[in-house]
């Protein structure tokens, strides 16, 4: 079990969300989209140009830029 931030994960890796560090509207938006502590999240792929990243959370696909993903602390699940 390793603690890291979402942007560090590679496609195919799964993790559990520990904390959302973002502030203000970004934080709220992330939470609205299901990024709450305890949720499972999987990296699906990165865009062809390397950013943004596509994740799978709560059964749907969500994309966000690396700079937003940095704000989500996760623990990897093996």
């Amino acid at each position: 079990m390793v603690e890291s931030t979402l942007n560090d994960l590679r496609p195919g890796e799964k993790a559990r969300i520990i904390k959302v560090l973002a502030k203000g509207t970004v934080r709220r938006k992330l939470m609205d989209m299901g990024m709450v502590p305890g949720s499972e999240i999987e990296v699906v792929r990165t865009a062809p140009l390397g950013d943004p990243i596509e994740f799978r959370i709560k059964g749907y696909s969500l994309s966000m830029r690396k700079q937003e993903a940095v704000n989500v602390v996760v623990e990897t699940i093996v």
Partner: peptide, 9 residues
């Protein structure tokens, strides 16, 4: 704005 976008099926 943050690019927090759903990719619908």
């Amino acid at each position: 704005a943050p690019f927090i976008l759903e990719l619908p099926p």
